[in-house]
Nucleic acid binder design. Structure first.
Lengths: 342, 342
DNA sequence: ATTAGCACTCCACTTTAATGAGTGCTAACA
DNA sequence: TGTTAGCACTCATTAAAGTGGAGTGCTAAT
């Protein structure tokens, strides 16, 4: 069990290091107004805290730096709920001032504003469309062999894919097929479309219209891609401002992770439960993020629709502020984003 | 006028520097098999070339480095058409091996492969859809006040936008409106849709259906966003491998330029005429690219549809190879990409 | 239990010296 | 007259050595 004095010292060290990025020494601490004891006393306490694993030295005669365990303790026990400023609130609410708010726009604006307010990198994962239901299916022929297949969901999401039509397909067969698909697919959640087509629609169609194998197959993946929501980054380059990221290799691996081609990010930033979650350093289980912390939160845009917000910064991150901002943000998003008034 | 020997020396220096990134000295040059004269002679020639502005020194007693003017001369007069390897050809053609090639996929794959083959950053600008004609317009109502407006063009491009419907709008009025829009818009190039609606369709509709001002307005910008084609990057991080980009500020400004939010890139990478074009250093008229060269080429996917390819690398770029690759690539793209068999 | 005092450590920075690649110039050479 | 060998000189790079300062750990005094 840590004494009150130890708690106080740990708190001061973490707070100091977060703002200065410099190892903090005993003398420096003793100068603070709220510290009444001498540097020597502080040194003793710091030695104990180090032995307990909360602090580290960068070299034998340097000041102390919080260890990962130190941050963890700080986050779990010393974090004081911080009130965000009126200006923060104003900025966040400006996102919703525009009446006509399409999901993607809101996500984008949120990402930008969060990265500006925190000066870290924000990641927003829009709610997946897979729980939404098909509102309409249509097929627009382009040439004799090509057409565009379009699915509109009840939240206004549009999926479209170029498909190759079976060779000799009469116009009325095409129409018939579209009718069947509409009959059977409207109302089905996007996530189930694949299965539905395979088990039910496919044989039904081939009864009326021959040779649709290939067409159906090229249409299958329509539904797979909407399973993750839109992923948007804000302030990707903010990480370059952090003094601990002057190392090109670290930057590279982080940037690499955030490159659109990789798709591990959604699973990384989705919080395990729906609360705010903080993962520090190696807790992320990701090489590129060994020196990073990530704070995630989720927001709801419908009964089963969940989006995720994440802020990535150095382990030496302003946890208090970010947590406060994220908490407010998630509330605003959930509050403003009620179902399909989209 | 440069003597043959000067030409040879300039060529050797540029070639050498391109591969080694190190200033090249007289002794080093004289060691080459194709050089018959002594270091002292070379030094004299180099001094002349420097005076003429083709070479520079990094400091008084360093070897020579090509100046921007040197690169320009090299590119204009010394570039030998290089044959690309069978492996290069194989890789490039693999892009088109897949029968079902959607424009966006091809663009993506091209960007990736070009960045891998060159180890520089590639930028691909897909052809704009604005010359394509509206194939179909449809409106899918979601709620009483919201709907999705969808435009499909004859090349299979789909534009969709959430729109707010006028308050009291009967179902048959809606249908009538959609019919009118289809009648009037089908066959119109995307670029002209805006104008067409404003001058013609708007009054026609308001004759039949009242109070459509707001709806029409929210629909206007549908057409503006397709004016630039899809923009795709390949190997954004390759620039980090270049020794001249170990400076964070340079990296930042380049990355910043390539960030999706900025939209100056299309105009930068579009070549002035339809040939291959090389811009070196400050010729780019862009701060972030003072130490970069950009090689652009265009390809045709239809009579009036033009896409652009660009490779961005350090001024010390392997011009020969990149030019050869781009030239082959543009031919392949144009050849494989014939109109709307998409 | 707390703190002043002191020896010690180590980083960061500066200075100095040595090395070596490269140049410019001059004089000799073919 | 064009070419080259020779030589003094410049400058980046590297290593070694010295210096100052911030910080620690320990001990003894309060």
């Amino acid at each position: 069990m840590l004494s009150n004095r130890q708690l106080q010292i740990l708190q001061v060290i973490v707070d100091d290091f977060i703002t200065s990025a410099q190892p903090v020494g005993s003398r420096q601490i003793s100068k603070r107004a709220d510290i009444t004891f001498s540097p020597a006393t502080i040194r003793n306490e710091m030695a104990d805290l180090e032995e307990l694993g909360f602090l580290e030295k960068t070299h034998t005669s340097s000041g102390r730096v919080p260890s990962q365990k130190g941050y963890r303790f700080y986050v779990d026990h010393l974090l004081k709920p911080q009130v965000i400023t009126a200006e923060d609130i104003r900025q966040i609410q400006s996102i919703f001032s525009d009446q006509m708010m399409e999901m993607e726009q809101v996500i984008r604006k949120t990402a930008t504003i969060l990265s500006e307010l925190t000066s870290y990198t924000s990641i927003l994962l829009g709610p997946s469309s897979s729980s939404h239901r098909v509102k309409k299916f249509s097929l627009v022929p382009l040439t004799a062999t090509n057409a565009v297949a379009i699915i509109v969901t009840d939240n206004g999401h549009v999926e479209n894919r170029l498909v190759t039509l079976p060779e000799q397909l009469a116009a009325h067969d095409l129409e018939k097929m579209v009718n069947i698909l509409n009959e059977r697919l409207v109302g089905v959640p996007l996530a189930d479309v694949h299965k539905k087509i395979e088990t039910e629609v496919m044989q039904l169609i081939s009864k009326h219209v021959g040779n649709v194998e290939h067409f159906i197959r090229s249409f299958f993946n329509v539904t797979d891609e909407a399973s993750n929501g839109k992923l948007v980054y804000g302030g990707k380059l903010n990480i370059l401002n952090q003094p601990e990221f002057h190392d090109l290799e670290k930057i590279r691996s982080l940037m690499d992770m955030m490159d659109e081609t990789s798709n591990e990010v959604p699973s990384i930033i989705r919080p395990a439960n729906s609360n705010i979650e903080i993962r520090i350093g190696t807790e992320n289980n990701h090489f590129a993020m060994e020196d990073c912390s990530i704070i995630t939160a989720s927001f709801m845009t419908g009964e089963h629709e969940e989006g995720a917000i994440a802020i990535i910064g150095p382990t030496r991150m302003d946890y208090q502020r970010v947590v406060a901002l994220l908490d407010f943000m998630r509330q605003e998003l959930s509050r403003n984003y009620l179902g399909p008034n989209v």
